[in-house]
Structures are given as structure tokens and as C-alpha cells.
Amino acid sequence: MDTDVDRDAGATGLPAVVTAAHRRAESVGFGYSREPLTGRLLATLSAAVRPGGRVLELGTGAGVGLAWIEYGLGGRSDVQVISVEFDEALAAAVRRSGLPPGFDVRVGDAEKLLAGLGTFDLIFADAPAGKWTGLHLTIAALAAAGVLLVDDMDPGRYTEPDHRDTVDRIRRTLTEHHGLVTTELSVGSGLIVAVAR
């Protein structure tokens, strides 16, 4: 069955929903959209979310990550997807674009909201809050066997020593955590995938 979510958008090689999100990012001047490798991994992990599961994205941006999640879910409406964005204007632009059933974009500081959101089968940590600060809250929000995807973990991407130190701290927290099984992927922006025991 070929749906709009499944179709690739011509020469870009990207799903149509992702191409539309990239266009939205350009139109609102948002220059931090996910690279295709990270997006495809996010889509793959989304496709594996259990029936009736929950997905959390920290950092909506212009909605490119949400588009990859939508693509991975392939039209499923049984999964609840929550995305948290600090910038109200960005969140509004994503909402105006039209969200699939079960998708919700919330505005606020992810670190402050995390404790009240419940647990999730998949979390994509793509914002400073919940990754650079409050990582323990993100880990606590993982359901049993929940998957955490963290990007931008290549210290070579950062020129400031304190930023490299922060990335190293995040990496150590995830790789040394007794409740997580963790793999580091030296691809793209540097990825870490962790699964709650």
C-alpha cells in the first residue's frame, strides 16, 4: 500500500513528509534539522514501538524529527507521540502544518515538563534540556525496554572545551549507567542508543 507518508520525494530520496518538514525549516529560518542518517535511524526505531506505545521527542524544532517519526510509524494511530519545544513560534509553525492523529507538540522547558509526562518506549533527546541538563530525568522517563536516542555526541563538533566536557559527561552517564545497555555510533553527528534494562 502506497501512502503519502511512504512516498519518496523525487530526487531528494527523502520521504515526502520529511521533505515538507525541511521546507518548513527553511521557511522559518531554522538551521538545525536532523541529518538523514539520524532521521532514518529515528524512523527505524519508531517502527519498532509496541502497539499502544508512546514516543517522546525533546526539541521539536521545525518538525523534521517528528516527520521521521511519522514516516517510521507508517500511518499507525495507536502510538502517542509527544514533542516538547521551548520556542512557541516554532511549535506553532509545526502545529499549523497539520499533525497526524496521536501527535502533540507542547511548549515549555523539557526539563521542567519531563517528570509529569509519564514513561515512553522511545525518547529522542534533541534539545539541551533533557540531554545537556536533566539527563537523569530523561533516563527516568524510559519505560522498561524503552529506547533512548541521543544525537550530537561527536566531541569534534564542538570548539568550546566546556561543550566537549559536557558531551563527555553525557556519554559517560549513558555508557556507565547500570540500568542501560548502550551503544555508541561514530556516524553522523555522533549517536548514542541506550535501552533500559
Rank of each mutant, 00 (worst) to 15 (best):
D2R: 03
D4M: 10
V5H: 05
D6S: 15
D6N: 07
R7V: 06
D8K: 10
A9G: 06
A9S: 09
T12K: 04
G13K: 13
L14E: 05
L14N: 03
P15Y: 04
P15F: 08
A20F: 06
A21N: 04
A21W: 05
R24N: 03
E26R: 15
S27I: 00
S27V: 02
G29L: 06
S33E: 15
P36C: 08
T38G: 14
T38F: 09
G39T: 04
L42R: 15
L42I: 11
L42F: 10
L45E: 12
A48G: 13
R54T: 05
L56R: 00
L58K: 00
T60N: 07
G61R: 01
G61Q: 01
A62M: 09
A62E: 12
V64Y: 01
V64A: 05
G65D: 04
A67Q: 02
A67D: 13
I69E: 08
Y71S: 07
G72I: 08
G74M: 07
G75R: 15
G75K: 15
V79G: 12
I82F: 01
I82Q: 01
S83L: 03
E85C: 04
E85K: 12
F86S: 05
F86D: 00
E88Y: 00
A89C: 03
L90T: 08
A92I: 00
A93K: 05
A93T: 14
G98E: 07
G98L: 07
G98C: 04
L99A: 03
P100D: 01
P100R: 09
P101Y: 02
P101E: 09
F103A: 02
V105G: 00
G108L: 12
G108W: 08
A110S: 11
E111L: 02
K112S: 14
L113R: 10
L114G: 05
G116Q: 10
G116C: 10
T119S: 15
F120I: 11
L122F: 06
I123D: 08
F124L: 06
F124S: 11
F124M: 10
A125C: 08
A127W: 07
A127N: 02
P128T: 09
A129H: 05
T133Q: 02
T133P: 00
T138H: 11
I139K: 01
A140S: 14
A143E: 15
A145Q: 15
V147Q: 00
V150E: 09
D151W: 11
D151N: 14
D152N: 15
D152V: 06
D154V: 04
P155S: 13
P155C: 09
R157V: 06
Y158G: 11
E160M: 13
E160Y: 12
H163C: 04
D165H: 11
T166S: 15
T166R: 15
D168L: 10
R171Y: 07
L174Q: 14
L174A: 11
T175N: 12
G179E: 14
G179N: 14
V181W: 07
V181K: 15
V181S: 12
T182K: 10
T182W: 13
E184V: 12
L185A: 08
L185T: 04
L185E: 08
S186F: 10
L191I: 12
V195L: 07
A196H: 12
